[in-house]
Design a binder for these strands. Structure first.
Lengths: 248, 248
DNA sequence: CGTAGTCTTGAACTCACTCAACGATAGTGG
DNA sequence: CCACTATCGTTGAGTGAGTTCAAGACTACG
């Protein structure tokens, strides 16, 4: 078979659940489009009706919510290889925004198309479900992080998670250099701190020798000390989650 | 057909997705047990392997996570009619605790049994998925609440949500009297405030005439003012989510 | 009726915020 | 190529929302 740009999408799902040839075939037959989006542009806005599902191929995206006073909370980040809105595949109305942080490229399929594949192929639906549940687990850890850790640990935790998730995607097991495409204000929106305080905590972590910083990247120098300062335990990422075998 | 204690479970799922007679029959054939649990007892603990799924019939339960220093963050509450761990149906390892707050009764089915029904009945899986996604939406709102609202609004938001969810379950559209089975310390763990501050904010809301308090219950006297103080917009609860029709 | 848990209140403290100014950097247009 | 502008990062000083500590009051329950 020729190369099909939907392959990464299929592989993403196949990493969660073993897919049958029929499953794979149905997925690869979906109409799709490859799209590029500029930083800041919205994939979907709160209260809108979701119309598309997609897989992030390159770049970084974020989910966010706003208070009525305009304060923003980033509720999730997405790296290449992450699905962008399987969360909302069956919801009538989006409950949060999804927005490009950097320039991103994504493969997009129509919501209805993916729904009908999922209807006929339970393995696909199961893969989507598992993906959703793991994202929910990450959101819960963020809630714990924001609610119950002090600024320094909170920021450190954010950096540890980003480093680990990045390492997985790039198949480099011990990557500690993070290309961080977030401004300090955006980091603050993720960990619920002001940009000023983010700046101070970053400098503190640097002064303690846990990280070093250059223009747009951070290197975690002392991983153990950093993970300890962050109270970081990656089990919530469910990295060891076993692939579901086909039952029938 | 005789009355089957699994009925509420089926109805719960059927409220999300239209089920076929075959779906219903398969669900009703599952082995189940009815269980009662005392306040504080664990339904599941973090890092454990989930073995059962259940529906909460009576009482209130909570999900929580702990930092290594022992600080607790409650990441979700469950009222009668809520499912207790469909979240973890496909996860190898629990990422949070689920614990009874009051004495609770629940209908429990074996994880494997529900999985095999879901495998063969896509509508069931879809219903579970929708349930999971709505819970995730609530968790995101909590993250916004804890991260970006001040104590008074944060607490008010918590109370508004509890009142609305309670009202739905009891089919009383405008219920504002809340039987709150949480200590102020537990409320604090939900909204990430100290019990002392929870106490002060409750008294402040009372002094402003937004709520009145008696022993174990709170009445929201001025709903509009309260919702406004809370920055509460219930759209994240997805109450108007339409039931999914069978596609055939 | 005593004990344990919860609620309440006060006082001191502190982590993080606000406000404000300045510096660095990158992109833009003339 | 340089000046202009906007955005981002950095730093200081003052402030405040929420915490900590501590003690007393209330309530439920054996």
């Amino acid at each position: 078979m020729d190369y099909n740009p939907l392959r990464p999408f299929v592989e993403k799902l196949a990493s969660r659940v073993e897919l049958t040839p029929a499953d794979t075939e149905a997925l690869l037959k979906m109409r799709f489009s490859t799209r590029e989006m500029r930083p800041g542009s919205y994939f979907i806005r709160e209260r809108q009706r979701p119309t598309a599902s997609s897989l992030l191929i390159a770049g970084v995206a974020m989910r966010s919510k706003l208070t009525s006073e305009g304060a923003r909370q980033i509720v999730g980040l997405h790296l290449p290889g992450d699905s962008l809105d399987l969360q909302q595949l069956y919801l009538d109305e989006a409950d949060h925004n999804i927005q490009a942080l950097t320039t991103i490229t994504l493969i997009e399929v129509a919501r209805g198309d993916l729904q009908s594949v999922a209807d006929k192929h339970p393995n696909v639906l199961k893969a989507i479900t598992i993906d959703n549940v793991i994202e929910a687990s990450i959101e819960r850890e963020w809630l714990l992080n924001v609610g119950r850790r002090i600024g320094r640990a909170r920021l450190a935790h954010f950096l540890c998670e980003f480093a680990v998730r990045l390492a997985i995607k790039s198949h480099v097991p011990d990557q500690t250099a993070i290309a961080l495409p977030l401004t300090q204000e955006q980091i603050g929106d993720a960990v619920a701190l002001t940009p000023v305080h983010v700046n101070r905590m970053l400098k503190e972590l640097e002064a303690e020798g846990l990280i070093t910083r250059t223009k747009n990247s951070i290197v975690i120098v002392e991983w153990k000390a950093m993970a300890s300062a962050a109270d970081f335990n990656p089990s919530y990422l469910h990295l060891n989650q076993k692939k579901q075998r086909v039952t029938a």
